[in-house]
Design a protein around this nucleic acid. Structure first.
Length: 572
DNA sequence: TTAGGGTTAG
């Protein structure tokens, strides 16, 4: 019998004694399983001695499972090792799914591959036993583990190695999620088309991929196909759908999903509030926040970020500051550095740069790149060169690779004609291999996604697109628009600079959009970088002259161009 | 014999 234990909470000794007295443990050692499982997390030495006295594969598996979902998952791996030592407890196909889940939980949240060692060792171990492709549960667990480790090729390999008969819906969904979590959104769309069936989990991944891509038509199609088969929208799918509509700039559809989603939780509300704030409807966002409080849902940290961002977008400086001050008491949400970032943005937009700087200096955290970055944007918009230079320097101290700060400095120096300093920034960027990713824009027309780079001529209708651009230019000059080439010096890449500003990717996307739509239509463009000043003013004029609503999602926010003005109120 | 895999939104 196992020695008495001294550590941890007390195991169920009464049960243990009963099992021993009745001889149940001798007749069937797996009778120890419930006891081993419950003891594993409270007193592992006790569980271990119990398992050693009455070894069975079943009991070990049960205890490993219990540890895998407990507070110290690494102990599941330890128990597995001791399981391998006993002759009467050989692992079987039930051993590995919980064990691999434990390995996935051991991975640090942020860093990918390196910490994958225990999981790959487990993979090797089950490979040696010939168990790796026999069982669909093991396959799915392995795939999920590699996905969690950020090793997409390995995840893919597990899928490819699994016999087609084992590729059931959960395995496919694991594969989708693996691509989603690594940012391969177009692959998610492609894979989902190859799937023999789809369920809610599939649609969640698909809709989420559409949000990232801004692929509204595909997202709508997914929504419609779901609506055909189900009665009501579940909370999770509803939240994912309205996030998708918001991130595609379709506020109306987001509202209708929001209304029909029953049983809304804090995430549902937060997504809606944040979406309204970033889509140029900050006052609606704040009104919705008030409604949320009335329904008794408590805001969390994310909700407060959305609320503060709404204040910033609405220029409601005093309200924003008040929310920041009262949130720990009134909403029991402790302000984080993100919240301070929103308020720096709020002050910066309002032109209160000194106060924004003062706030950065008093935040109870070490100021980060985001905080200084918010100030940098404000300095750029309000043309405060000295403070902007200081902010850029602070950013480069924290992140010497920060392209935005380099570009800002180079631009400031170029404006001032300090070419030696410009050269200095440029060569330092070259030395550190800092580059601005090439600008690209996506426009989705009739369900087909087109991508443009700057100066792109790869589109089959390229001639018509450039003819349209010419026409736009003529219209603009009639309207008195002068191209703002100021930001050309922002371009880091020499080649980029030579590409005329009139061929920026978002302008090409716009031209194709104009050719393919008629008056009153909506043109939706997704840009990977921040929209440049010239493109921004061109979009405004085009929205009026050609009578289109143009929705541009850039790196940070939405621009809804309509009747000659933009929802961002020219601050971005 | 008993038990095991996928889940999304800010």
């Amino acid at each position: 019998m196992p020695p008495p234990t001294t550590a941890g909470t007390l195991p169920n000794r009464a049960l243990h004694a009963r099992l021993l007295r009745s001889g149940a443990l001798d007749a069937d050692p797996s009778a120890a399983a419930p006891l081993a499982a419950s003891a594993a997390n409270s007193s592992l030495p006790y569980a271990l001695s119990l398992l050693r006295a009455h070894p069975s594969t079943f009991s070990y598996n049960t205890a490993i499972r219990s540890l895998a979902h407990g507070p110290r998952p690494h102990l599941a791996v330890a128990l597995y090792r001791s399981m391998l030592l006993g002759p009467l407890s050989n692992p079987n196909n039930y051993t590995y799914p919980p064990l691999l889940a434990a390995c996935a939980r051991l991975l640090p949240a942020s860093s990918p591959t390196p910490a994958a060692a225990p999981g790959t060792a487990v993979h090797a171990s089950l490979f040696r036993r010939g168990l790796d492709s026999r069982d669909r549960f093991i396959g799915a667990s392995l795939l999920s583990f590699y996905a969690a480790a950020g090793d997409l090729p390995a995840a893919r390999q597990v899928f490819d190695a699994s016999p087609p008969g084992q590729r059931d819906l959960p395995l496919w969904n694991s594969l989708l999620h693996a691509h989603l979590s690594q940012g391969f959104y177009a692959h998610v769309l492609r894979l989902s088309r190859q799937m023999p069936a789809a369920d809610e989990v599939t649609l969640l991944a698909l809709v989420s991929a559409c949000s990232h891509l801004g692929a509204l038509d595909t997202g709508r199609w997914a929504h419609a196909s779901y609506a055909r088969t189900r009665r009501s929208t579940t909370r999770n799918l509803g939240t994912a759908l309205l996030n998708m509509y918001m991130r595609c700039g379709d506020v109306e559809s987001a509202w209708s999903v929001f209304r029909e989603t029953l049983d809304k939780d804090v995430r549902t509300w937060s997504v809606m509030i944040a979406g309204l704030a970033t889509n140029g409807l900050p006052r609606d966002a704040l009104a919705l926040f008030a409604e949320m409080k009335n329904t008794g849902v408590d805001p969390d940290s994310i909700t407060m970020t959305a609320v503060l961002s709404a204040c910033a977008h609405a220029g409601m400086v005093d309200e924003g500051k008040k929310f920041l001050d009262c949130m720990p008491v009134e909403y029991r949400v402790q302000p984080t550095i993100e919240h301070y970032g929103c308020v720096v943005d709020l002050l910066g937009r309002a032109g209160q740069l000194d106060e924004a700087l003062a706030l950065i200096k008093t935040v109870p955290f070490k100021a980060d790149v985001v905080l200084w970055g918010a100030l940098l944007v404000a300095c750029r918009v309000h043309k405060n060169v000295d403070m902007g230079e200081m902010a850029a320097m602070e950013i480069l101290k924290l992140d010497p690779q920060h392209a935005g700060a380099c570009v800002f400095l180079s631009n400031v120096y170029a404006d001032a004609g300090k070419w030696d300093l410009v050269q200095g920034v440029r060569s330092s960027m070259k030395e550190h291999k800092i580059y601005k990713p090439p600008g690209s824009s996506i426009v989705e027309l009739n369900g087909v996604v087109y991508e443009f780079l700057s100066g792109d001529r790869s589109h089959p209708q390229s001639d018509r697109i450039y003819a349209m651009l010419d026409e736009i230019c003529k219209t603009l000059s009639l309207k008195g628009h002068k191209p703002s080439t100021k930001e050309v010096t922002f371009d880091v890449d020499e080649e980029d600079k030579e590409v005329c500003i009139s061929q920026h990717s978002e302008k090409l996307a716009l031209a194709l959009g104009l050719i393919s739509t008629t008056r009153g239509d909506v043109i939706r463009i997704v840009k990977n970088l921040r929209i440049c000043e010239d493109c921004h003013s061109v979009m405004k004029i085009v929205s009026e002259v050609y009578d289109r609503v143009i929705v541009v999602r850039d790196r940070n926010r939405f621009h809804h161009f309509k009747n000659g003005s933009c929802s961002c109120l020219d601050y971005w």
